[in-house]
Design a protein around this nucleic acid. Structure first.
Length: 500
RNA sequence: GCAGCUGUAGCUCAGUCGGUUAGAGCGCUUGAUUGUGGAUCAAGAGGUCGGUGGUUCAAUUCCUCCCAGCUGUACCA
């Protein structure tokens, strides 16, 4: 033997920004996804699944002057040296799918898809590096009717999940209107300098809810210093330009018609701006015809979103209620989903313009919100009946009991651990088992089994503090003929399900 | 990435103005009370005091750097 080798013991830990999801949450989230799926199906969308990773260039995140994929995505090289990246959303893979299968698809192509996506970013409370999205998109639909439908469907989803009508709102804007306002403000030009300024302005507007209009003014102008002393460079606009943009973002709040009129005034002669308002008016007409009023879908110039590829109407699903979190702090949930029109995305692959619009739900955030609202469905799966192992020699007989219970649809399991009876009952208690089946020597000699009603027992233990009395209470159990096992278990289960 | 704060048991936290065997509550394991959950009682496991280097007779405590976490901010397709 060589010297004592130190065994390598990896630290058991979940990677930063990832998490394990316990049974109750898996079930409840699954139920939530099923509800959303029903709504998407009802609107005529078809399911599609694509793989977790794609060629990096298909996701479109190569920096022009670098030969490795951008930060923010998880990437690795295949054995032929090609870069692959984990998908960071479901829209880029959809664009790839449509471009790849373009000729074989019915157009418009309508699909829904859910699944995990990954982003290599700094995690925070409620922000993870893996999270689930649930998207629906219509590809090949140029008109505002497709956008209006997205808004209606999103509202329907939230209501299907039990979020009451006054507790959420779809906020809608149009990037063309924003472009129009930029034109009339004289924020125009070409090239990277202009692009950068453009982007800075939009990011600033996006922070309105967090920083307030004063903070946004600073970001539009000279820049802003935060409380830790960190300085963020501003867009360098003039006071006049800043006020016009602030005025635009504050033009929301009224009826959709009123917002459109306000937008018209601010957009002036800008052609693109007028076009944007016209689209919104069309959306308004469609929504109104179906009965979706401002309490469900409102127009709001402060909505900018994602900033990347949107080319027309953009929308955001916002929860408007507040809730108290575990620490007793008031929390607003804000945006739980969003989307918009992206007419250029498929063009990257095909060279042809393929107009598209879609909506994406942030599943985990929405789930957290439902939890706070008390709208999460309780664990509907009953815990299993547990058959104790009193004598190892009697295993075949115990196995037969669970099989009998399962054959009539009762969740049942045989105790598979190695501990004694006390530990077995404790285990059953922790699992939430309603009934424990006991067959020791005594029962077997009489051809009986003992059924212990753990739910009844738990009720009794509330009243009893004395150990002697607890023992006297006979543990809420009955002995029944072995041949009548299934019927009696059913009877006890039935009693408790009726009690609810 | 930048800035500030914080790292002691599985969890929540004491404690040492630098000094001998580092504690509590909860949780966990085993046992007693009946072959039987809760309550009660008893015993037990679990810590290189985040890591490294330094100052010192002596560092969990003071200093350096590193790492991790939290908060704000930036980025977020």
């Amino acid at each position: 033997m060589a010297k004592k080798k130190k065994t390598f013991r990896p630290k058991a830990r979940v990677p930063k920004g990832l998490r394990d999801i316990p049974a109750a949450t898996v079930r409840a989230e699954g139920a939530m996804l099923a509800r959303i799926r029903e709504v998407y199906e009802l609107y005529g969308f078809e399911p599609l699944e694509t793989s977790a990773f794609e060629y990096a260039d298909a996701l479109g995140k190569f920096l022009p002057d670098e030969d490795r994929p951008n930060e923010g995505v998880f990437s690795f090289q295949d054995d032929d040296d090609q870069w692959l990246s984990l998908r960071y959303d479901l829209t880029a893979p959809l664009a790839r799918f449509v471009a790849e299968n373009y000729d074989g698809l019915p157009k418009p192509f309508r699909r829904y898809q859910t699944g995990p996506v990954w982003r290599n970013e700094k995690p925070g409370p409620g922000r993870f590096r893996q999270f689930t999205q649930f998207d629906a998109d219509t590809v090949g639909a140029p008109g505002p009717a497709a956008d209006a439908e997205m808004c209606m469907m999103a509202a329907d989803c939230l209501e299907a999940l039990g979020i009451p009508r006054s507790s959420y709102v779809m906020r809608v804007n149009n990037r063309k209107v924003l472009d129009g306002v930029f034109e009339t403000c004289g924020i125009v030009g070409e090239g990277p300098e202009f692009e950068k300024q453009h982007l800075t302005v939009m990011r600033a507007i996006d922070k309105l809810d967090r920083l307030g209009s004063e903070g946004v003014r600073l970001l539009l102008g000279p820049g802003r210093k935060d409380e830790s002393g960190d300085f963020t460079e501003g867009a360098g606009l003039s006071d006049n330009q800043i006020e016009r943009i602030i005025a635009f973002t504050e033009a929301g709040g009224g009826t959709r018609d009123a917002v459109c009129s306000a937008m018209e005034a601010l957009v002036g002669d800008s052609e693109i701006g007028r076009e944007g308002v016209l689209e919104l008016r069309e959306i308004d007409a469609l929504l109104t015809a179906v009965g979706y009023e401002e309490d469900r879908v409102a127009f709001d110039p402060a909505v900018v979103r994602g900033l990347g590829y949107y080319t027309g109407p953009v929308y955001e699903a916002e929860l408007t209620f507040e809730a108290t979190d575990e620490e007793g702090e008031q929390r607003r949930f804000g945006s739980v989903g969003g989307g918009g029109r992206y007419d250029d995305l498929v063009e990257r692959f095909k060279g042809v313009k393929v107009p598209a619009t879609g909506f994406s739900i942030g599943v985990s955030r929405l789930f957290a919100a439902l939890e706070a609202l008390g709208k999460v469905e309780e664990n509907t799966v009953a815990a299993p009946v547990i058959v104790l192992v009193m004598d190892k020699d009697a295993m075949p007989g115990y196995q037969k009991m669970v099989a009998e219970l399962r054959s009539v649809g009762i969740r049942a399991e045989l105790y598979l651990g190695g501990s004694g009876m006390r530990a077995q009952v404790k285990y059953a208690d922790r699992r939430g088992a309603p009934v424990v089946v006991i067959e020791g020597e005594d029962e077997r000699s009489k051809g009986e089994v003992t059924l212990k009603d753990l739910i009844l027992g738990a009720q009794k233990s509330e009243e009893i503090t004395d150990n002697a009395e607890w023992r006297e209470s006979a543990h809420a159990q009955v002995s029944v003929p072995r041949t009548a096992l299934v019927e009696h278990v059913q009877e006890i289960l039935g009693r408790h399900s009726k009690a609810h």
